[in-house]
Write a protein that binds this DNA or RNA. Structure first.
Lengths: 218, 218
DNA sequence: TATTGTATGATGGTATACAATCTAAAAATA
DNA sequence: TATTTTTAGATTGTATACCATCATACAATA
């Protein structure tokens, strides 16, 4: 009953997921041109499907399409990255606040479990898993806080900085501070202390932003 | 030089614009099904083009596509609308703050001109023109404040509440308060008074939110 | 009445064709 | 040689035809 609106996974969807992952994981270099025919062969689907995927990627701003030339993988400049982290901070802080006010026991145990999973994945070096669990962690916060639109925006913003996120996460994870920050957020939520939770969240994001910006000009 | 990246307007682009306008202006009822073949005839283009348009609208969340059934015009519930206005408020307040800190004479005269245009359009009952000028007003603020990513998000959010915006704008315009609020923002920006500008902006948005929510359950 | 077929229409997907346009190499020119 | 022009190839934009699958409404049956 979770998502009974589009149960059947279409070819276009799975192709889109593959392309998204390929872009965010850096299999395509930023600025690289994406040629329809080549993608058709690589993914084993027709041009129709590829074109629909490209339109989707275009409106997600993962690629930039020029008429009669085709799409290229979007590049990130420091200003954009900086702004993306600032917006994320606003949205996440707001969600954390709302969550702290209404969170019940179920939500809190969920969050604690995710923290645990994230720590474990990070210590074992499984970045991909850590990213996925971090996503679930924040998703729980946003949903609990009733911020579904904001969550959607955050996901879009995150997909645009996908490459950087892997770096920031592993960097934050290597230090002790990263998971500690998340635990601080959960503790404050548990205590229904919105201000403290908001501040912990803001600090975590500011830290991530610094790491991302450093990574970007390297 | 504004958008020299995609000068050639393709069929798909113009069809997409027509569809967007048709949806945001309410020519299609919320929840109504969009049938490919019908759209092909109405717009005089092939299914290929229509399908790409639908994918684009889908990822803009103006339509909701169900696999094997097709797209329907998205409906708005009060929670979504409320959240959209809250997010807009966060983003716009932030942009107004930045703008107030850096705005030069050029920006300010632009803003004053737009205010004038908006007032005139509203008194003459030209809502469409007023919407367009309001867009330019805020765009100037965001660009001046260096918030290009945020501006993009605001435009997406606005397109989702397109029907409501026409109502709120004309409602705010009928009262004297609406244009007065905008003038207050400009005055504060002119004085480089970020706090006052931010507050005026927040009030304006809160007002718009109320009107929109009232309209929604009528 | 409730269930099961069945017909119809829409979508998801493929393949193909062709014109317009871009790109890059080849050729011509200075 | 350096620069411009031409030209051929590659790629996109769009149209069309076709098939399989799914959804829905309706008819037939028990």
């Amino acid at each position: 009953m979770l998502s009974n609106l589009k149960r059947p996974i279409t070819l276009k969807e799975s192709a889109l997921n593959e392309l998204k992952e390929a872009i965010t994981l850096g299999y395509f270099a930023p600025g690289e041109r994406l040629v329809e025919r080549v993608l058709c062969e690589q993914l084993g689907v027709s041009r129709t499907v590829i074109r629909e995927c490209i339109r989707h990627l275009e409106s997600d701003q993962l690629v930039i399409a020029k008429a009669n030339v085709g799409p290229t993988v979007a590049t990130l400049n420091p200003e954009e990255v900086s702004e993306i982290y600032e917006i994320r901070s606003m949205l996440e802080v707001s969600a954390v606040r709302s969550c702290a006010l209404v969170a019940d026991e179920t939500v809190i145990t969920d969050l604690e479990n995710y923290c645990d999973l994230i720590s474990r994945s990070l210590t074992s070096g499984n970045i991909k898993e850590a990213l996925s669990d971090t996503r679930l962690f924040y998703q729980s916060i946003f949903i609990a806080g009733g911020k579904t639109v904001a969550w959607d925006l955050v996901e879009r913003l995150n997909s645009r900085i996908g490459q950087l996120r892997a770096v920031t996460l592993s960097s934050q994870g290597r230090s002790v501070a990263g998971p500690k920050n998340l635990l601080a957020i959960v503790a404050a939520i548990k205590a229904h202390d919105a201000d403290t939770a908001a501040q912990a969240c803001a600090e975590h994001l500011a830290q991530a932003k610094e790491i991302a910006l450093n990574e970007l000009d390297s």
